[in-house]
Each structure stands twice: as C-alpha cells, then as structure tokens.
C-alpha cells in the first residue's frame, strides 16, 4: 500500500524522481484481498501441475513425445509477450509513483497489446494443433495441455479486463503517487498470470 510517508521518504516532492523504486519494507503490495485471490489461483494451478506430474510418471512415453508435437514458436512468443506485459505493468506502477499518469496509461496500453498478442497467438496455436490432428482426446498429454493452457488463456482474458479497468480509473484520476493501492493490486494479479506461464511453458513445451 502506498501512503504519503512512503512517498515523502523517497523524496518525490523535491526531485520529481523517486530515490528508489523499492517501497517501504514489510509492506503488502496492493491489498490483502488481492493476495487471497493470488494464493487461491496459485493453489488451483498447483493442483494442475500435480495432475501433470502424476500423469507423467504413469505415461512417460506420451509425455516425452508430446512437447515435440507442440508449436514451440507459439509457446516462446507467448512467454516473451507475457514477460514484456509484466515489464509494462511494473513501469506503469513506477510512473504513477512519479505522478506521471499519462505515461502510466501508455505503459498499460502496452500491457493490453501484449495480452491481445498472447490471445491471438494462442488461438492460432489451437487452430494449428487441429491441423496437425492434435485434439483434447488425442492422448493424456494433450488433455492436460488443453486444460492447463485454456485455463491460463481465460486468466489472460480477464486479467486484461482488469488492466482496462485500471486504465479507466487512471483516466478518472482515481490513482496518484499518494494513492494507487488498486493499481498495485491489479499489477500483482497480472504478474501472477505471468508467473503461472513461466511454469506452464517449460512443463508443456520444453520438458521431456
């Protein structure tokens, strides 16, 4: 949570530039509520990863061959898109702390572009899969693949909706250097979406 003492400690009023991007110690970024959501989502995906590991030890050959049939380019492009989107969100939060609202909005639009890019690439990948004869019931690896990636696809979709909401709130003047708890909460949620993909990508596209 960003309060005025934090901002003052970092010298923004005098210099217009924070002394450090690191907020005060022992804080909870965003708010408590969003972390309930983040831990719930991380637990949900942890269960999916558990299913992946258990399915893999019982069907080693299928899980060794599966990644070779997937489109690595699509997986890599989506990883780069999500990492870039997380960078844009972090820059947006840093901009708001300097009261550069217009700049923050531009960074968030960068996030939206990355999110749309991700959704388009993933949709293209699903069509590409169908052309290769890869469907949900092809084998257990692809069942896990579709369940995990489509679930993540939905998260990127509604996470993008949250970013749009943040842009709307910024335009309405709801966030400032002194008060941007809501933006931080949305930023943390978006980073969580990126984190989950950081695990999904190697499990499904790389690991054999």
């Amino acid at each position: 949570m960003a309060d005025s003492s934090v901002i003052a400690d970092r010298g923004i009023p005098e210099t217009g530039q924070p002394l450090s991007f690191l907020p005060k110690p022992n804080r909870i970024p965003g708010n408590g509520a969003v972390w309930v959501g983040i831990y719930a989502e991380m637990t949900e995906f942890a269960l999916m990863f558990l299913v992946y590991f258990i399915a893999k030890v019982f069907h080693q050959e299928v899980f060794n061959q599966g990644p070779l049939q997937l489109n690595t380019l699509a997986g890599t492009l989506n990883t780069l898109a999500l990492l870039t989107s997380s960078f844009c969100v972090a820059k947006a939060v840093a901009s708001v702390r300097m009261n550069r609202i217009t700049t923050a909005i531009r960074w968030l639009w960068g996030t939206i572009i990355c999110a749309v890019f991700y959704l388009v690439v993933k949709t293209w990948e699903y069509y590409w899969n169908i052309e290769q004869g890869i469907e949900i019931e092809t084998n257990l690896f692809f069942t896990v693949y579709y369940y995990m990636t489509f679930n993540h696809f939905l998260h990127v979709g509604w996470g993008g909706g949250a970013i749009l909401w943040a842009i709307y709130r910024l335009k309405k003047g709801a966030y400032s250097a002194e008060n941007h708890e809501g933006l931080e909460a949305i930023a943390c949620y978006w980073h969580m979406i990126d984190l989950v993909w950081i695990i999904i990508f190697p499990l499904l596209y790389v690991l054999r």
Partner: peptide, 8 residues
C-alpha cells in the same frame, strides 16, 4: 516485478 523482495 511484484516487488516482494522487501515486502512482508
């Protein structure tokens, strides 16, 4: 990115 390095 999440800035947890000096968080709670």
């Amino acid at each position: 990115f999440m800035e947890l390095r000096n968080a709670h």
